[in-house]
Nucleic acid binder design. Structure first.
Length: 1004
DNA sequence: GAGGCTACG
């Protein structure tokens, strides 16, 4: 039973085989009871039967007899292709327009027996093509569209269980991978128009190369114009190539260069003259032939050029000629004029739309300027650019091929043949010209491994891959370690650009998802407002009704809301009229609604939170900023803005903010054409940018300082995003940012400077203690001798935990620790002053001295240069007459040595040399000196006699002090009389802070 | 003072 079921797997749906095989294997392995075995087998048999029935349903839908139109070149090759398809997994079919490959290949697959066990999937780059190809094939097969032949594009799934063939856009197939990585429901895949090398196609071809190894029963047909076909073959391990000729008429190529040399600048006028001449040549030769048939298609590079050319051509007043512009943004009603018969000859002036997207019928002549705007992504400025470039040979030939579809054609190239020959063979594939963020996000989501290893047809540069990754990190789809984030997973499944997906995700947390769905769906489609140079005034006036004064995005929301109301109130005819009145494209408004609806469903599925109340300005614009971190800017002057990465750009005149004074803006899109322009924009606050760019901003802190007002350490912050200063100088608490510095500053500028406002007892007690010590130092004229700031700082640093860096921290810590903290913070001489000499010195500077049994107060001031500087003895007036020099000389023992040194150094050189080294002598002398010998000089003379055996005269000291000149300050002793004061001054060195001075003595 | 073209559970 099990074996017979296993055999039946070959007739099941491919999509079911893997699952059914697993079930059967489980039954075989599992030691099931007799009863369970029977029921399991029955269930498996039923499932297999169901799958077989699905095959039968398909088989029944496929016409038994398949015929090919005889006149199509591919028809003759049907048999050969069938054979190759059976023998090979991959087949490359090369064929130009009119070969019939697009319509006939699916039929060949059917005839070869495919389409029963799985779908034949057939992709097209454009929606319209997918639908029309589906119709034509259904027609030719005589089956109903939507049943046997199905189709699926973004908003329309027109397939059924019977479908054996499915036409779809390549984007649809791409998203199907996310549901079924093996694409199990397909038996054959046809990737059409591979030569267009869109991002989608390149990704699919890379993905399929890997998939083919895992799915041996999958067949792949890649079709392309006859451009670089070997490349596709090589990519798929030398897959066979079937080249099918196109069914076209010969096209004559004429070269009519505008300039003598290719380096010469070609301006608009020169080009228009060339076009006029070409048109007139065509008219002349037609006249000669006597036939005047055939329309002319002129390829130009931009809308502006087309307008200028059209104006000039119309001025020529040709008879029976219609001048018809054709470009993507052109109003639909204008576009369809090319399909309607007109007065006579049509001259269609077109951009690249006419190269692939729109087929202009009845063209016999092509005039090619050889130029096009080509989208490129600047890795440097991260801005999309649209430079006008010389097109590739392949593109020129594609343009040429636009004539000669119905009869012989002529292609006039407005450049030299040598110019053509020198051009690149192929246009760079899109993957080389665009930001890779969306591709990378998709690959991450599908876990396809390293991007560098992925088998792309043309591998993007590592630099470009890095840029894509950077953008995804900016959008927080990837972490800094390049892992898919939670929001990245959501972004991958939202059917919009990663940037827009980010906006939606942010919006769900900012309570404005409803608004962002409206905005994002609008940004994703072409602007539904049909504004052109001929209706600008009027259109702007009408649409001004919906203008929001600060935000183009909110103007869109207003427009949407009004339209939704009208849509419910009006019938279709009235609605169309409404659109016309407001210069809205009915079709694009519909597309807006369709995209919006799709987003609504996607967001719902992801569980993104929808807001019921109206989203506020701040939230909406923060959401926009989150997806536009490279598009924010600060106004420089007038129209120009400075964006990040040091780029400048202008605001396009269509923005409500144009010519207004918004200082900061976010823009939806920036494109570099003749200069860089931002189109949609809104006024924002720089703080919003910071909030949305927390993972990217660079912060610098400066001027950390103690703030008495805030009782903590503050600093200023400068915030930059990609080089743009968002916040110049913001005051903030510094303790979290740099606790170490903050603690140091708290100690120095707060605790030590005494700027801490607290009622902590220990703080005040220490302040008093330090004041007492400072007083003591003043006596000694040695600030910092007992306790320097650094000692106090070290004291606190040792005792305060690192987290304490503000008054509040200190209070909290002391309260928490209680007495132990107070004990450890208590300053004493023992734990603060550690110099023995300093301790001794304390006794040498008494607060009072006994003079004639009176205790007189001594006061010390350390204020060099000031009259009160020095020690001052307070003498009652009645005692002044009794006062002697000796009383003053011995009053402050601490000054003794210095006074002696000064005296010795003041001696003439011949004397002075006896005392070298002076310090040693003075130290020895001072030990013996006392008031017993009289005054200071007398006592010193005694010691000079005792120690050196020299007899000096008192006058020698007194002379020397008088002889002292200012030039010899380091040995100068001056005695100055100032009123009733006697003071001695002594200074060491010039300019430097005096280290010690002779105390001044003042009599009151 | 001025916008090439596509595409998406």
């Amino acid at each position: 039973m099990l074996d017979s079921l296993k055999q039946k797997l070959d007739t099941c749906q491919l999509a079911d085989v893997f699952r059914l095989e697993n079930t059967l294997n489980k039954i075989q392995r599992g030691n099931l009871s007799q009863k369970d075995l029977a029921s399991s087998l029955a269930a498996a048999a039923a499932a297999i039967e169901k799958s077989q029935r699905a095959c039968e349903l398909r088989r029944a839908a496929i016409p038994i007899k398949i015929t090919y139109p005889k006149n199509l070149p591919v028809s003759a090759r049907a048999e050969e292709i069938t054979k190759l398809l059976r023998e090979h997994q991959v087949l490359i079919v090369a064929g130009d327009t009119g070969s019939g490959k697009t319509t006939q290949l699916p039929k060949v697959c059917l005839e070869a027996g495919f389409g029963v066990r799985g779908l034949i999937g057939h992709t097209q780059p454009r929606r319209l093509a997918a639908l029309s190809v589906a119709n034509r094939i259904a027609d030719e097969l005589g089956v109903e569209i939507g049943l046997g032949v199905g189709s699926q594009i973004r908003f329309k799934d027109n397939t059924s269980g019977q479908s054996f063939l499915k036409l779809m856009t390549d984007g649809i197939l791409l998203t199907e991978i996310q549901q079924d990585k093996l694409l199990n429901k397909y038996e054959v895949l046809i990737i059409d128009e591979a030569h267009e090398r869109s991002l989608n196609i390149d990704f699919l071809l890379g993905y399929l190369k890997q998939l083919l190894q895992k799915r041996e029963n999958l067949k792949l047909i890649v079709t392309s114009a006859t451009i670089d076909v070997e490349k596709f073959s090589k990519h798929f391990d030398n897959a066979p190539i079937v080249a099918v000729s196109g069914r076209t008429y010969p096209v004559e190529t004429r070269y009519a260069p505008l300039a003598e040399s290719s380096t010469e600048q070609i301006d608009d006028d020169l080009q228009i003259d060339g076009i006029i001449k070409a048109v007139e040549d065509i008219a002349k030769s037609d006249k000669k032939k006597g036939s005047s048939s055939g329309d002319i298609l002129v390829f130009l590079s931009s809308e502006r050029e087309i307008r200028a050319t059209a104006t000039k051509l119309r001025k020529q007043k040709y008879r029976d000629v219609d001048i018809l512009p054709l470009y993507g943004r052109l109003r639909y009603s204008e576009q369809i004029k090319i399909f309607k018969p007109g007065l006579g000859r049509k001259i269609v002036l077109a951009t690249n739309v006419a190269e692939t997207s729109i087929t202009v019928p009845g063209i016999n002549y092509v005039i090619d300027t050889g130029l096009a705007r080509i989208s490129r992504y600047s890795l440097q400025s991260k801005v999309q650019r649209l430079p006008i470039e010389a097109i590739s040979q392949a593109s020129a030939n594609q343009r040429k091929g636009r004539c000669g579809r119905m009869a012989d054609g002529v292609c006039i190239r407005l450049y030299a043949e040598s110019d053509f020959e020198s051009r690149p063979e192929f246009t760079d594939p899109e993957i080389m010209r665009t930001n890779l963020a969306s591709v990378i996000l998709r690959m991450k989501y599908l876990r396809l491994g390293e991007i560098e290893q992925f088998p792309f047809l043309d591998a993007p540069e590592p630099r470009a891959i890095n840029e894509g990754i950077k953008l995804l990190i900016e959008l927080d789809a990837l972490s800094h370690s390049r892992q898919l984030t939670q929001s990245g997973r959501k972004m991958a499944v939202l059917p919009v650009d990663p940037r827009y997906a980010r906006m939606l995700i942010t919006a769900s947390t900012q309570n404005c998802l409803r608004e962002l769905q409206i905005v994002v769906s609008a940004l994703g489609i072409q602007d539904p407002r049909e504004i052109s140079s001929d209706n600008r005034q009027q259109a702007k006036q009408q649409l001004a009704e919906f203008d929001h004064e600060d935000s183009d995005f909110l103007s869109l929301v207003k427009l949407w809301e009004d339209y939704e109301k009208k849509r419910q109130d009006l019938n279709q005819g009235q609605l169309r009229k409404h659109c016309k009145k407001y210069f809205l494209s009915y079709m694009r408004m519909r597309e807006w609604r369709e995209v919006h609806h799709q987003l609504l469903l996607s967001c719902q599925k992801l569980g993104l939170r929808m807001n019921r109340e109206i989203g506020d300005y701040e939230g909406i614009h923060k959401s926009l900023i989150s997806g536009s971190l490279n598009q924010i800017a600060k106004r420089l002057d007038g129209r120009s803005f400075r964006g990040n990465r040091n780029k400048t750009f202008s605001l396009f005149s269509t923005s409500v903010l144009a010519n207004k004074g918004a200082k900061w803006i976010v823009s939806g899109e920036q494109i570099e054409t003749s200069q860089t322009f931002a189109t949609t924009a809104a006024k924002i606050q720089p703080e919003w940018i910071e909030e949305m760019a927390l993972h990217l901003v660079k912060r610098e802190y400066f001027e950390p300082h103690w703030s008495k007002k805030r009782q903590q350490v503050m600093a200023y912050e400068k915030v930059q995003l990609y080089g743009l200063v968002i916040i110049e100088k913001a005051l903030l608490s510094y303790s979290k940012i740099d606790p170490k510095t903050s603690r140091t500053l708290f100690i120095q500028e707060g605790l030590i400077a005494g700027e801490v406002s607290t009622d902590l007892k220990i703080y005040h007690r220490n302040r008093e203690f330090l004041a007492a010590l400072a007083k003591q130092e003043e006596k000694m004229r040695r600030p910092d001798l007992l306790v320097a700031e650094r000692d106090v700082a070290a004291f606190y640093e040792q005792r305060l935990p690192e987290t304490v860096c503000s008054t509040r921290d200190l209070t909290a810590w002391v309260r928490k620790q209680g007495t132990s903290a107070e004990k450890s913070l208590l300053m004493t001489v023992d734990n603060l002053v550690d110099s023995d000499t300093a301790m001794n010195a304390l006794h040498s500077f008494p607060d009072a001295t006994a003079v004639h049994k009176n205790n007189l107060r001594l006061e010390y001031v350390f204020e060099p240069g000031s009259k009160v500087d020095g020690a001052t003895l307070e003498v009652p007036v009645e005692m002044v007459s009794q006062l002697q020099q000796a009383d003053l000389d011995w009053a402050v023992p601490g000054n003794l040595a210095e006074k002696c040194t000064a005296l010795i150094k003041g001696l003439p050189k011949s004397r002075r040399k006896n005392f070298i080294p002076v310090n040693a002598f003075v130290a020895q002398a001072c030990e013996q000196m006392s008031n017993k010998d009289g005054d200071l000089i007398a006592s010193l003379l005694v010691q000079i006699r005792n120690l050196k055996g020299l007899e000096l005269d008192r006058a020698e000291f007194e002379q020397s002090t008088a002889a002292c000149t200012p030039e010899h300050q380091d040995s100068r002793i001056e005695r100055l009389r100032e009123g009733d004061c006697v003071c001695g001054q002594y200074s060491r060195g010039q300019g430097a802070a005096p280290a010690a001075r002779f105390p001044g003595k003042r009599r009151k």
